[in-house]
Design a binder for these strands. Structure first.
Lengths: 110, 110
DNA sequence: GAATAATATCTACATAATAGATATTTACGG
DNA sequence: CCGTAAATATCTATTATGTAGATATTATTC
């Protein structure tokens, strides 16, 4: 097992999908809201930033600060965007899961 | 965020699917082989047992020792089986991912 | 009975996920 | 303008997951 392989963790995975789904409006609060709306999952805001930071380090996500344009105040939003490398990674992850789901005994069961 | 939610981690997820796919023949070596064959992923045997043990603690998997029936020796195999709770969990996980994948911007991209 | 094959178990460490408290910035009402 | 509230990000600490590989156990063959 010489060369390290890396994979999207499960939370990383859904955060990336959520960011992607939000297009130009993906920042901490909206990502959190979207996760709650779509899959009913409550995430701590800290969890989110920790994860996006890791994803940035891996080159799967980028972030840019908006100029201060908040409705009622607040720090400048940090907008996230999935990189093309990130998209490739998502695609690979999805294909692998689909392969596993497609196996006989599995598709009969779940 | 009072009550703790738990989710299948990414490795847990694929291990469960693999065990399921192997039916009555799921033990350390075959699970490892299947993962290599289907998605080209090399896993350390220790990683596998650590994970199955955790899944057992959560009630998503059970294991039973075979009588010693190995071809050429070796310790008795430990056969794994996904519990019905495990199946429910897999189903939930799959549905959530499918929801996210189905979102407009996502399905246009990956 | 020594070498080898098939398997599981153990130990230690690295990475990912979670929780929630705290800090920063701006707008609104008086 | 000042205090309060709102919107957001950042920080700190802890727990849960994932990874690696060495070691132990059991049986077979020669």
């Amino acid at each position: 097992m010489a060369n390290k392989q890396t994979f999207l963790g499960e939370f990383e995975h859904i955060v990336m999908l959520t960011v992607l789904s939000l297009g130009d409006d993906a920042y901490g609060v909206t990502v959190r809201q979207q996760l709650r709306d779509i899959i009913g999952r409550e995430v701590a805001i800290g969890a989110l930033y920790a994860t996006t930071e890791r994803l940035e380090k891996k080159g799967l996500l980028t972030s840019t600060k908006s100029g201060a344009s908040a409705q009622r105040g607040g720090k400048a939003k940090r907008y996230f965007k999935v990189t093309s490398q990130g998209i490739a990674e998502l695609e690979r992850t999805k294909q692998n899961l689909e392969k596993l789901w497609g196996l006989q005994a599995v598709s009969q069961t779940i």
